[in-house]
Nucleic acid binder design. Structure first.
Lengths: 235, 235
DNA sequence: AACTTATTGTACGAATCCGTACGGTTGGGA
DNA sequence: TCCCAACCGTACGGATTCGTACAATAAGTT
């Protein structure tokens, strides 16, 4: 770890802040469906992903769920720690296998206490994540399944290496909060328009610009805010 | 202003923190539909509501909007300032007329710089607001119009004085992100079950417990988190 | 190769909600 | 008092999504 990691937050820290965190960073490989946080439980580690994808998922009685936050190499988990809470408000788990650095929660909060610049920088990221969630609330209310699917694929593509996304219809359905067959049909529509290729367990992004157009405003604003608050991001 | 204001945040500040803010607090009456923040524009004031209601609203091209945050006497506007941004990410305006204290953004950020306890307390509130937004994203994806309506009325009632909510179907439709006649029909259903009374421009809460039940999990979790993070709240 | 499991394709009636239109009602102002 | 604007009730076809069920296909295992 002589040069900076791929994670966009770690990459942009000042030298001092990075050095203060560095001795506590542990490299880990995160398997599909690994749990990073559980709702109501203390946060054990903060994860900075270098690749792959994690989802923050909300559960509602009875037996209903949907994604309320997406985190990849542009971000981190454990944002509640920055806000003065030691517990996770939601479940968070790995959607695409990931190489990541993690820090113990205590070490992380220590580092925060010792560096105002670290804290204020990461707070800007948490704000960008909040903006993402607000947009999710908006599009969940007002966008159609195919538009939301296009948005999700674009967000996933922004965070993935290469243009192949390894994801099943079943999980896409949870992410979007719709039926599984609804995803199958929506994917077929996108494929019919040449925007993606769809195979068992994976989606191939063929035409980003076309997807953005189809998303019809569902994609873009949170990404623009991230770039303003943090820096370059996406494809 | 010898005793503490009705606003739950101001009320719970330490004496020192409250005194540091007090000289800069200006009492204002906020008319219906007053704009408190505009997306992309610098934040001028931070508002601590003592009564009434403000909504954070997301816009999506083309010409579509929905509420992504609700703020009343339990909270404040201008949370972006705590996150290191000086601009509003979304529009925010008054849904129910309000008595409020406001502070100029510069004075507010000065006070934050000078008190770690003030900052960390208010960050916990911003976190509670984020939790609210995450739940909104969830229920927008998975709850029906009548369930979301029940949730909204309960949230509004938590923040209102008395049980009469002065709100039109038209605005409720924007809040929920649905058609206006959809609200009319859903209100009739709630009224038919004796949960509310509905008159021109106002809704009367008759049976909170019944509304909670009808909301079917849409109401509650964010409110529980607020109580854990900040303190007592609601009816 | 046979078997098992995960994943995907398809179908269909029902429920929900949309877009839109239009008439009725209410309340405040000229 | 009359008028006007805002607000509410209702209707209707159509689009969308749901809930569910079941068959077909692909991948991995024995």
């Amino acid at each position: 770890m002589n040069q900076r990691p791929a994670n966009l937050l770690l990459k942009q820290l000042s030298s001092d802040d990075f050095e203060s965190l560095k001795p506590h960073l542990e490299e880990v490989f995160l398997e599909l469906h690994s749990s990073l946080e559980k709702a109501g439980q203390p946060i054990k580690y903060v994860y900075f992903l270098n690749s792959g994808l994690a989802s923050v998922v909300g559960y509602k009685a009875p037996a209903v769920d949907a994604e309320v936050g997406m985190i990849g190499l542009e971000g981190m988990t454990g944002s509640a720690l920055l806000m003065g809470d030691d517990r996770a408000s939601h479940d968070c788990f790995i959607q695409m296998t990931s190489n990541a650095y993690r820090v113990e929660a205590d070490m992380f909060t220590n580092a925060l206490r010792q560096s105002e610049t670290l804290k204020s920088f990461l707070l800007r990221y948490v704000h960008a994540l909040h903006v993402q969630t607000m947009h999710t609330a908006l599009v969940n209310a007002r966008s159609k399944t195919n538009e939301r699917l296009a948005r999700w694929l674009l967000m996933c593509d922004d965070r993935a290496i290469g243009e192949r996304l390894f994801i099943t219809h079943e999980f896409l359905a949870v992410m979007l909060g719709v039926r599984r067959p609804g995803v199958t049909v929506a994917l077929q529509e996108l494929e019919g328009q040449g925007l993606i290729g769809s195979m068992r367990g994976q989606v191939l992004i063929r035409d980003r610009a076309g997807l953005v157009k189809l998303a019809n405003g569902a994609y873009g604003p949170p990404e623009a805010q991230y770039r303003r608050l943090i820096g370059a991001f996406g494809k």
